[in-house]
Design a protein around this nucleic acid. Structure first.
Lengths: 226, 226
DNA sequence: TTCATAGTTTGATCATAAACGAAGTATTAT
DNA sequence: ATAATACTTCGTTTATGATCAAACTATGAA
């Protein structure tokens, strides 16, 4: 009965509503200040501070001080992936926090998953890149093929710089709404950033929703078609 | 801030030590009675009963009544996968419940992950089957190739019967110790069962450890070599 | 029938930890 | 300097929920 890692501690950290709200807010990928997080969670600053301390102690979040502000973010991709997985389980069990609101359709369509694109459009990209042999689901990890490298470069991304990074280039991440994989890792982040750069899409304020322009969505569907 | 599914509820369910112990015990894949679970969790029967009711309400476990016994099990593979993912995160953060005990090496080597094989040997099987093109990591899901089907049949598994099942045949599941994928799904279960049948390995009582015989391990390493 | 075992329900107790106000530190703005 | 903002620390209050004993239901055994 005392085997393996302590899931109870992690569970209880995620299990508090205030902390869960903070973590969900951080799933937007943006680094947020303690004040912003306290607002998101609907609690006062002192309470938020205590919560953040606990999350930090478990290395679920990272912090960076900038002047009198303190910015918090998810510690790494894996934390985001696990949160997304838990959301998937919760969604499937019908444990939805609110009745399906107006935002939900948009969330399912395209949203940010910590730092990369999730939702139907995220899955579309993943499927397209697999179908065209840009990505190879070899072994456990994903690999970018030479074809894929050419394509991504043509899309305006500096692949070599990414590869020099310690961060894994390609990773798959399971989608809670579509229940399919989408692309995470350095490349996933770079692709999303580039799409913002190209003006294909923009972020909705304090939300995970990624709003594509009509043109942007058309381009995405074409250029990443299977 | 009120987007998406309610992760706090799931988190708090997993976050209680007693419930976490029960869920961990159920990760052995065996169905356990309420009494057994109360013993595993170190609590009295009434308390356990209350916990099980909550887990049931969230559809994390299933129950089956047999005479005056009530058997509990994890609701499905997805629950097991998420628990394993959380263990992975916890392990990486160094949130280990106990100092690395004698069982830990055995656990890393081979253990049961709900109903299939995990640990180094589980990963070995997965790698071997991928390398030999028995399994194709296509798209999101895994497919069993014709070669693979022949191999598995030769191993003594009735593939057709498995395929008629509603349950997905192949799924990958992330390993918390090896941080690599291993084979889950109907085929994963069937393979493990067959290995027990062949006498390659046996279960350690009330533990996730799968103990391979010297011969069994040798066979496994050879027959599933990359 | 009577007894024993398995599990549930109820009610009371108790500990934990979430919450906030107030006071304290640190950084920036005026 | 003074003030304002951003965050932390401390101490107190409060509510939640985990726990168990005792009583209750249901199934099986003698």
């Amino acid at each position: 009965m005392k085997e393996g890692p302590d899931i109870a501690l992690l569970g209880s950290l995620i299990g508090d509503p205030a902390r869960a709200n903070m973590l969900t807010a951080l799933m937007t990928g943006k680094a947020l200040t303690a004040s912003e997080l306290s607002y998101e969670a609907g609690i006062t600053l002192p309470t938020a501070s205590a919560h953040l301390k606990k999350l930090q102690a478990a290395s679920l979040i990272s912090q960076r001080k900038s002047g009198r502000h303190k910015y918090f973010a998810l510690a790494d991709d894996e934390v985001g992936a696990v949160l997304e997985a838990i959301m998937g389980l919760a969604a499937k069990r019908g444990l939805l926090r609110t009745r399906t609101g107006p935002k939900d359709a948009a969330l399912r369509r395209a949203r940010v998953c910590y730092n990369h694109l999730a939702g139907e459009l995220g899955v579309h990209i993943y499927d397209g890149m697999i179908a065209r042999n840009y990505i190879l689901a070899d072994d456990d990890s994903l690999h970018l093929t030479d074809n894929g490298k050419a394509f991504v470069s043509g899309f305006g991304i500096d692949v070599d710089r990414l590869q020099n990074n310690r961060r894994p280039l390609c990773k798959s991440c399971l989608d809670w709404s579509a229940r399919r994989s989408h692309l995470a890792g350095g490349l996933g982040t770079a692709l999303l950033d580039r799409m913002f750069e190209l003006g294909w899409a923009s972020r909705e304020k304090s939300s995970r929703v990624v709003k594509f322009t009509q043109q942007g969505e058309k381009q995405l569907l074409e250029q990443f078609a299977s």
